[in-house]
Computed example of a mutant assay.
Amino acid sequence: MLIQSAFSALRQTFSPPLRAILWKSLGLTVGLLVLVWFGLTRLIQWFQASHHISDQYPFLDSLAFFLAGFGLVVALAYVMPAVSILVAGFFLDDAAEIVERTDFPSEPVGRALPWGTALLYALRFAGLTLLVNIGALIIFFVPVVGIAAFFAANAYLLSREYFEMAAARYRPLAEAAEMRRAHSGTTLAAGCLLAGMMVVPVLNLVTPLFGIALMVHLHKRLARRLPAPAPLTRLR
């Protein structure tokens, strides 16, 4: 089920119907990462200036510059999951509807969450993911443990966020969360796939759209095993 969903999601990610959303998703992802990079570089420059590192230890200036560059790369990798969740929140409903109409034409299309609710939900999870990854970053240099903590935490958080957002198009959020817990093995395996993509440069930029398509497929296939949920009546 997961492998079939993953291949279908990969096909959809680069398909013509989703191409416009893909470019928007890439643009927003890169834009947010540039803002984070800019903020981190300003913070490093302020720290160096306030502690007079260049004046007191000139030879450390070049070393600090090198380490700062390496640190920025590492920091951006740990920020990427939170950025991915935030980006997915912006494009979920448009992308999910295209996937539903093209790959499941005989089944009803889901209903979007109210925009404000969807945004708050994405912001909440993005904030939680950022906090968790800051904690994982603190233990980055602990052999094995740092990488394992990063992977495990993001596999869980990404599986939870992406699946519940996709499922919430068909059922209340509480029921979507319950469905995820009932199929925790499958959804967590999907989260492991997304977490793995996060550590691959360039590929991690398409994770938001791929994650949406993946979880739409996964939810559809899992939902076929369940009784049909009561129709949702949401105000747009």
Score class of each variant (00 low, 15 high):
residue 114 P to Q: 06
residue 127 G to E: 00
residue 147 I to C: 08
residue 88 A to G: 11
residue 54 S to H: 01
residue 169 R to I: 09
residue 52 H to D: 14
residue 80 M to H: 13
residue 176 A to T: 05
residue 154 N to S: 12
residue 123 L to N: 02
residue 177 A to F: 06
residue 78 Y to Q: 04
residue 223 A to L: 04
residue 214 L to H: 01
residue 124 R to G: 15
residue 95 A to F: 01
residue 139 I to R: 02
residue 30 V to F: 14
residue 101 R to C: 06
residue 119 L to A: 15
residue 52 H to L: 12
residue 4 Q to E: 12
residue 212 I to E: 03
residue 158 L to W: 06
residue 62 S to D: 14
residue 8 S to P: 11
residue 71 G to Y: 05
residue 17 P to G: 07
residue 63 L to S: 06
residue 98 I to W: 00
residue 46 W to N: 04
residue 173 L to N: 05
residue 204 N to Q: 08
residue 72 L to E: 05
residue 141 F to H: 06
residue 134 I to A: 14
residue 146 G to W: 02
residue 227 P to S: 07
residue 207 T to G: 09
residue 19 R to D: 03
residue 76 L to C: 03
residue 32 L to D: 10
residue 149 A to L: 15
residue 193 L to S: 12
residue 1 M to Q: 08
residue 105 P to V: 01
residue 101 R to W: 00
residue 85 I to W: 00
residue 221 R to L: 01
residue 122 A to R: 06
residue 132 V to N: 06
residue 236 R to N: 10
residue 117 T to M: 09
residue 132 V to A: 15
residue 219 H to W: 14
residue 33 L to M: 14
residue 142 V to Q: 07
residue 189 A to R: 09
residue 228 A to Q: 15
residue 218 L to G: 03
residue 36 V to P: 12
residue 28 L to V: 15
residue 57 Y to R: 01
residue 168 A to P: 15
residue 1 M to D: 08
